[in-house]
Computed example of a mutant assay.
Amino acid sequence: MQHDLFSTNGGSEPISLGAQSGLLRGFALPLQDQLLDAIQDIALEAPWRQLFTPGGKPMSVRTTNCGTWGWHSDRQGYRYVAHDPHTGKPWPQLPELLQQLARRAASQLGFSDFEADACLLNCYEPGAQMGLHQDRDEQSFAAPIVSVSLGLPAQFLWGGTQRNERPARIELLHGDVVVWGGVDRLRFHGVAKLAAGKHPQLGAQRINLTLRHAGN
């Protein structure tokens, strides 16, 4: 299993992470240029920002969103909102390119007809991290999560359904896609502190796109 997690299969076959979860190595690589252009367009309309936890602590990542719903955090809690609190405008439209990528990735793990209505974009710079958490803010847990990694490599923390279960560490590379749903939908996950480095296209950063179905 350890060998498989660090092998490269070009996204042809999922590497199993659980009963209904898997890693697609290099799955997004054929679309990398279009994805980077789309991210730039999204950030022009809804600029990157640093959010705060309900407890008032600044998050180490910068975020933005696209789609019908955008994930937001402040003193009022974690939630999805239909308008960008910074601009008062609806979030940028979810690009069809991203929708199709997420749909194809989900189908590789047996989740047919996945329709994302929210995409959270997180920008990590060296030293940024994401603590272990569950994605529980969606109205339903029936749809899977599709996570796309671009830029610097990261150590993905893949835990169990209980916070105290020790997570596995899985290296995610530029173009990798992780999908989890069904019995694995509420597994704890996170990202270890990002190591310093420089990616040929993104420089000293990693961008993660997490596509979800957040509404009814």
Rank of each mutant, 00 (worst) to 15 (best):
Gln40Asp: 14
Gln40His: 12
Asp41Gln: 09
Ile42Cys: 01
Ile42Met: 02
Ile42Pro: 00
Ile42Trp: 00
Ile42Tyr: 00
Ile42Leu: 04
Ala43Cys: 14
Ala43Asn: 06
Ala43Met: 12
Ala43Asp: 05
Ala43Glu: 07
Leu44Gln: 13
Leu44Cys: 14
Leu44Lys: 14
Glu45Trp: 06
Glu45Ala: 09
Ala46Val: 07
Ala46Arg: 01
Ala46Thr: 06
Ala46Leu: 07
Pro47Trp: 14
Pro47Arg: 14
Trp48Lys: 05
Arg49Lys: 15
Arg49Asn: 13
Gln50Gly: 15
Phe52Met: 00
Pro54Ser: 10
Pro54Gln: 12
Pro54Ala: 11
Pro54Val: 09
Gly55Arg: 05
Gly55Ser: 09
Gly56Leu: 03
Gly56Ser: 07
Lys57Gly: 07
Pro58Met: 04
Met59Cys: 05
Met59Ile: 07
Ser60Asp: 07
Ser60Met: 07
Ser60Asn: 08
Arg62Gln: 15
Thr63Glu: 05
Thr63Leu: 10
Thr64Pro: 03
Thr64Trp: 04
Thr64Ala: 06
Asn65Lys: 09
Cys66Asn: 01
Gly67Cys: 03
Trp69Lys: 02
Trp71Met: 02
Trp71Asn: 01
His72Asn: 10
His72Tyr: 12
His72Ser: 06
Ser73Met: 03
Ser73Arg: 00
Ser73Tyr: 00
Ser73Thr: 04
Ser73His: 02
Ser73Glu: 01
Asp74Ser: 10
Gln76Ala: 15
Gln76Asn: 15
Gln76Cys: 15
Gln76Phe: 11
Tyr78Asp: 04
Tyr80Glu: 02
Tyr80Phe: 08
Val81Glu: 11
Val81Asn: 09
Ala82Arg: 10
Ala82Leu: 09
Asp84Gln: 06
Pro85Asp: 10
Pro85Cys: 10
His86Asp: 15
Thr87Glu: 10
Thr87His: 10
Gly88Cys: 06
Gly88Thr: 08
Lys89His: 07
Lys89Gly: 04
Trp91Ser: 04
Trp91Gln: 03
Trp91Gly: 02
Gln93Ser: 11
Gln93Asp: 12
Leu94Glu: 00
Leu94Asp: 00
Leu97Asn: 08
Leu98Pro: 00
Leu98Trp: 00
Gln99Ile: 07
Gln100Gly: 09
Gln100Glu: 13
Gln100Pro: 03
Leu101Phe: 08
Leu101Met: 09
Leu101Pro: 01
Ala102Thr: 03
Arg103His: 15
Arg104Ser: 08
Ala105His: 01
Ala106Cys: 11
Ala106Lys: 02
Ser107Ile: 09
Gln108Ser: 15
Gln108Asp: 11
Gln108Asn: 13
Leu109His: 04
Leu109Asn: 04
Gly110Asp: 13
Asp113Gly: 06
Asp113Leu: 14
Glu115Arg: 12
Glu115Gly: 07
Glu115Thr: 10
Glu115Asp: 10
Ala116Ser: 09
Ala116Asn: 04
Asp117Val: 08
Asp117Met: 06
Asp117Asn: 10
Ala118Tyr: 00
